[in-house]
Design a binder for these strands. Structure first.
Length: 222
DNA sequence: GCGACAG
DNA sequence: ATCTTGTCGC
């Protein structure tokens, strides 16, 4: 698929995003998703966490090959295939996806979290480390937030998950509203800047990547 | 025209 | 994302 076709597909799928939670939405299991790279090889991980207790539940790790370059705005085309494989490898489907990237806080309002949510039908939230739009620094205290703006639209929030740390950027992915998404991210990020789901997935795929012989893997060491 | 630009 | 030493703090 070419970048032009990818853009056309995003424009076609964007209207499918449902920016609100279904009646009685009460997620119990959240899945964190992340990918680690080693040249053109990659490892994707899905890690489930009990939202109530924080307990680590099922997880899955899969490997694959890079099929699309990193292009801002088309990030999903690089990680989506592997992330779908990781989700499919889970013994049970999670109630909500916590994605490492943006949802509607995207040029065409269809970032990774939206794409993943729409193709799986699972509610999804986007949590990015850096903004695409503009924002004013939130108050220093954990829980405070300010609007994230893009093209004069309020597309998400800059949320402070820990006192004095750089905020994370939360946006709606699919089948959830921004308030619910914000509360969920805050609950999942009790002790660190990033939600436990994202941290768990990051550790898993990174560890798997290190143990996998690849093109330009470490010269020596183990 | 030039730079910026989720991971 | 990944390349990289030391350093501050719980």
């Amino acid at each position: 698929m070419t970048p032009e076709e990818a853009v056309a597909e995003q424009l076609r799928l964007a209207p499918s995003v449902v920016p609100r939670a279904a009646e009685g939405f009460a997620p119990r299991v959240a899945a964190g998703l992340d990918v680690a790279y080693d040249g053109d090889r990659l490892v994707a991980a899905a890690a489930c966490v009990d939202i109530e207790t924080g307990e680590r539940l099922d997880s899955a790790v899969v490997e694959g090959r890079t099929a699309f370059p990193y292009v801002p705005g088309l990030f999903a085309y690089r990680e989506l295939p592997a992330l779908r494989d990781a989700l499919a490898a889970l013994p049970a489907s999670p109630d909500v996806l916590i994605c490492d990237g943006h949802g509607i806080a995207h040029p065409r309002r269809f970032g990774l979290a939206c794409h993943l949510g729409v193709v799986t039908g699972i509610p999804a939230v986007g949590v990015a480390k850096n903004p695409l739009g503009e924002y004013s620094p939130p108050a220093r205290e954990r829980g405070s937030w300010t609007p994230l703006t893009l093209d004069a639209d309020e597309v998400g929030r800059a949320l402070r998950t820990q006192d004095g740390v750089k905020p994370v950027f939360v946006s709606v992915g699919h089948l959830i509203d921004i308030d619910t998404a914000t509360g969920l991210v805050l609950r999942l990020a009790r002790r660190h800047r990033q939600p436990e789901t994202t941290r768990a997935a990051d550790h898993l795929c990174r560890a798997a990547s290190v143990r996998t012989p690849g093109p330009r893997s470490r010269p020596a060491g183990g």
